[in-house]
């Protein structure tokens, strides 16, 4: 028994003086697969960076479609009016949609409201609870895939950003007939067909 205690004490001593440290299973897993700090920061990034970036750069949807209609080359149009990290990714456009709610689809979990502008353009704005796509993640200029180097974690980050968008959309009791101002973003591979555009919001204001 004494021998066992002595051996245990000796082992502990070796561990103490060899610079080793016991880690929990959780710590070990984190060391193997460190979580991206951006996952925890997603709500703050949405609130303090992304919302500002979009509201400052957004074009009214009618103005954007008019400008795009004069362009021949989508890549050039994207670099002038939109943003993408590389030509192999969708182009993301920041837009402002102002008008009245003329339709609501809350039957699907991919819920939308249709906002019709003063000029009669009908645009679908996503209200969740499932937000489709990654426009809000991908429009960010400061945070790209390179910061993650892991497709799954990058995907998770996109979901967390979308969750903030859902919170924005569901903060109001939206109804047909209300006038709203929405800032948000959408993604497209080519010149957009407005009927298929789905704007993911960063702000929704009832006027």
């Amino acid at each position: 028994m004494r021998l066992r205690i002595l051996a245990l004490a000796l082992c502990s001593g070796i561990l103490c003086f060899s610079g080793c440290r016991m880690v929990s299973v959780q710590e070990y897993q984190q060391l193997q697969d460190p979580e991206s700090p951006y996952l925890k920061q997603a709500p703050d990034i949405f609130k303090n960076q992304l919302t500002q970036q979009i509201t400052e750069s957004a074009l009214p949807i009618d103005e954007l479609t008019q400008k795009l209609s004069t362009e021949q080359d989508f890549a050039a149009a994207c670099s002038t009016y939109g943003y993408r990290q590389s030509t192999d990714l969708q182009c993301n456009f920041a837009v402002k949609v102002e008008g009245s709610i003329t339709e609501m689809n809350t039957k699907s979990r991919r819920g939308t409201i249709t906002v019709t502008t003063a000029s009669g353009t009908a645009v679908k704005v996503q209200i969740g609870p499932v937000i489709m796509g990654t426009a809000l993640r991908d429009i960010q200029k400061d945070i790209s895939y390179t910061a993650f180097n892991d497709q799954t974690v990058y995907g998770e980050y996109g979901e967390l950003i979308n969750a903030q968008s859902v919170a924005v959309a569901t903060a109001h009791e939206l109804a047909v007939g209300q006038n709203v101002e929405v800032y948000g973003a959408f993604s497209t591979w080519d010149f957009p067909n407005i009927s298929t555009v789905r704007v993911a919001p960063v702000t929704v204001t009832i006027k």
Binding site: R109, P129, V130, Q151, T152, G155, E156, E159
Partner: peptide
């Protein structure tokens, strides 16, 4: 393949 499966579930599990 693992990444694809995770992507499937990230979408489908919301329904």
């Amino acid at each position: 393949c693992v990444t694809r499966s995770k992507a499937f579930h990230q979408v489908i599990d919301q329904f």
